[in-house]
Structures are given as C-alpha cells and as structure tokens.
C-alpha cells in the first residue's frame, strides 16, 4: 500500500458515495446511465469472487464488500425505488458491444487459464470501458448535472491514481502487471475529454454543457 493506491481507493469510494447520495437525496436517478451501473456490478462481482477464497487484509475485505454492496444498492435505487426517474430514452448504448469483446479478450489474454483468473481479467477489461454508456448518455443529452460531473471526476481519478501506484510499485518492488496497466491506461484515456471539460467548466462554477 502506498499513497497513490490509497488515494485511488478513496477516490473510488468517494465516487460511489457521491452517486448514492445524489440519487438518494434528489430522489432521482436522472442523468445516470443504468447500463454503466450494471456493468460496474458485473465488474465487481467477477473480480471480488476471491473474497471467499483468499484472505488479504481487513482493509481489502471491507473495501471489496463496500464496492459490491454499493453497486447493487445503486441498481436497486435505479431499477426499483426511483425507476420512474430513470432516463431510459437517453441510455441507449448497446452493452453487448462491450461485454462480448471483454469476454473474448479475457479468454485469449490472461495470466492463467483458470476460472477465477479469467473472471478477474474479464473484470479488468470490462471496467476499462464500463463508463462508456454513461459518457455516451452525457454526450447525447449534451449536459450533465454538476453532481454527476463530480461523480465522473472522482471515478476517473481512481484509475489514474492507480497508474501512479503501478509506477511506484515498479520502481520500488519491480512488480508490474501488463493487463492491469494497459486496461488502466485505456480507462483513464477515455475520461480525458471529460477531465478537460470538468476543469475548464465545472470547476469554474458552470454546468457541464457540450458545444452543440
């Protein structure tokens, strides 16, 4: 554990908390892509199956449990509790175009051809593109609420900080994992356009609006 990794995890946690409290207190999931949230629930489920096989640390277990529970809680809020506010007409990204390549790639490129390892690899690939339905939705409506922008910024920063963590681990331990690094870079690059808009607009108190 190093500072980048810790900040990355905290940023991830912050993103989830922002999203949950936004939906909960506004009693609305308008502007949130349910499809991205479904993909995240699949990502955490596939990745954290090791909860029942390996003990790493109390920190590790707690974070995994929080990420899993919060992803299902988010789905519950969107699909059941506040389903009337779900903006399904703008959430039209076809997630099979992300799921199928992630499955095929995980079967082809992995560290070890075992069930848990292929699922871990699948979750890494899928996570790198899981935000696309959400970004697609923002581009389709041309705008995002500030709170949604804060959510996206925190979520995007998380993998960016993990990249610094991987640099640090390479220098200090000589450890590196190409699958995680390449997927992490792809994931972060997908947010770059958004990061730019966030810094130039949202931080200056303006609403995130895309040029028409």
């Amino acid at each position: 554990m190093n500072i980048f990794r810790l900040l990355g995890d905290l940023s991830h946690l912050l993103a989830i908390m922002i999203l949950l409290q936004k939906i909960f207190y506004s009693r609305s999931c308008a502007g949130i892509s349910a499809k991205s949230q479904v993909l995240f629930a699949i990502v955490y489920t596939a990745r954290y199956l090791d909860l029942v096989t390996v003990y790493v640390s109390l920190y590790n277990i707690s974070m995994k449990v929080v990420f899993l529970l919060s992803s299902y809680a988010t789905l519950y809020l969107i699909y059941l509790k506040f389903r009337a506010t779900y903006d399904r007409n703008h959430d039209t990204f076809r997630i099979e175009f992300l799921l199928l390549p992630a499955i095929v790639l995980a079967l082809l490129i992995n560290h070890q051809f075992s069930a848990l390892e292929v699922l871990w690899t699948f979750s890494i690939y899928l996570e790198s593109v899981a935000i696309l339905p959400q970004l697609f939705m923002v581009s389709k409506t041309g705008e995002a609420e500030s709170i949604t922008s804060h959510y996206l910024f925190a979520l995007g920063s998380y993998r960016g900080l993990y990249i610094l963590n991987w640099f640090y681990r390479y220098w200090t331990e000589g450890h590196y994992d190409l699958i995680a690094i390449v997927a992490g870079v792809v994931q972060t690059v997908l947010y770059c356009d958004f990061f730019y808009l966030y810094v130039t607009k949202v931080l200056k108190g303006k609403k995130l609006q895309l040029p028409a």
Binding site: D9, N60, M63, K64, H111, A180
Partner: peptide, 10 residues
C-alpha cells in the same frame, strides 16, 4: 506470482 498479487489491489 502475478496472480497472487492481483488479490491485493481493488
């Protein structure tokens, strides 16, 4: 080696 290390990160 790499496979074990994967369980630590989130």
């Amino acid at each position: 080696q790499v496979v074990e290390e994967n369980h630590d990160e989130l």
